[in-house]
Design a binder for these strands. Structure first.
Lengths: 214, 214
DNA sequence: TGTAATGTTTACCAACCGGTCAAATTATCT
DNA sequence: AGATAATTTGACCGGTTGGTAAACATTACA
């Protein structure tokens, strides 16, 4: 008799690792489009190219799949904010934060939509992460920004709303991709739109915050 | 024998009007949280306080409910952008556009989330509206902005990305409300956050666009 | 008041949903 | 090779889903 997910063996098989990877990849495809409630295990199974019971052999429930996916993606997702450095100078830090966030919107749109779906639907599965680790990280970086403002390096402004505005403007290009493409039309909806967006946003934030130019 | 939705009578009964209103109100509650696929007719029926077959007497399918809801809300939703006036001066136009959008995020968060859910999931039901009326409206307003830039009233910038950034920053407070509250903490997540956001965003956009002060 | 149209509900259906089970298949190790 | 553990699948289950049929109740109107 098989015991799911190698509760005995401690070490994970190559097969286990590969299959779990394969499942989470498919789950990301599906969850990021339809949200938790709107997705079905069958859909994920089909995308993953394996049978439903086989999926459930590696993840006991649909919720476990979602949980594993969120956990895996959350850390990576906050990487750019974590890299936000108090020691650096405001201009380059803000510039590179915007760039990094835009790159993530371009390269990992599914991850962005996964969170967007989750938060939009009331964040029933990640409330703790938001109120705990996320809030702590933002609090820390907000302090950095506040210090810059006090030192006259940037204009005085609410650091939380500054962070929100960078989040929203950059993630917009992943989450509302269809709308962006529709509005820009066929001609302008190539990959170049990310460069255009970067230029616009850097200008907006650097000038808007009256970042002191060295 | 009853014929659904008065295909014969042409004129809608008071009851019809009232019930359809009641249903769409409930549907907005449910769809805005769970998206189309994640919502069930039973949920809507319960919120509306009527039986499922009764709902289906007024709207033949779940899709018809969603369609009617989108159609009704779309017009209102674009009102602020429509009000954006070429004749006005850039500063007050941009200021009031931001204010209006923020007010909508505050007063009609369900409507915002309804669209967010829809677009996030690939806009399967409103693709035509995005590529048609929405694009046309944005094209028109983009021209206004471009003219302002040419006249030196604001800095030269991509008008489309400017509009996107106003959309995303303002709607963020409706769509990602849970996250905003979580990060701001209990103390700062009262209604005052909209005032704070307005102050920040006006400052950001007015300074960031180097709007000529008269 | 009678009656036809409109509105509402109960009972129901077939398809789908998340998840289980046991049997079959495959990989691993000696 | 043979034994054992890990993996995979088809068949299935109870509950839910979108939607229907038909009987019942209410309203509008002559």
């Amino acid at each position: 008799m098989a015991i799911p997910r190698a509760a005995k063996t401690q070490r994970r098989t190559r097969i286990q690792e590969a299959k779990e990877e394969q499942i989470l990849e498919a789950a990301l495809d599906v969850f990021s489009v339809s949200g938790f409630r709107g997705s079905t295990i069958d859909q994920i199974a089909e995308v993953a190219g394996m049978s439903k019971p086989n999926l459930l052999y590696y993840f006991r429930t649909k919720e476990a799949m979602h949980r594993a996916l969120i956990d895996r993606v959350l850390f990576t997702w906050l990487e750019p904010l974590r890299a936000f450095d108090a020691a650096g100078n405001p201009e380059s830090e803000i510039r590179s934060y915007i760039r990094r966030k835009l790159e993530m919107a371009r390269d990992f749109p599914r991850e962005s939509r996964l969170f967007a779906n989750e938060v939009l639907q009331g964040a029933p599965h990640i409330e703790d992460e938001l109120k705990g680790p996320l809030k702590a990280l933002v609090d820390e970086k907000a302090d950095v920004i506040r210090t810059w403002a006090k030192e006259g390096k940037i204009v005085k402004c609410d650091p939380y709303h500054l962070i929100f505005s960078i989040w929203s403007t950059t993630q917009h290009y992943a989450d509302f991709d269809v709308q962006v493409r529709a509005v820009l039309g066929q001609d302008n909806s190539g990959e170049g739109r990310f460069e255009d967006a970067a230029r616009f946003l850097e200008q907006l934030f650097i000038d808007g915050l009256r970042v002191a130019q060295p």
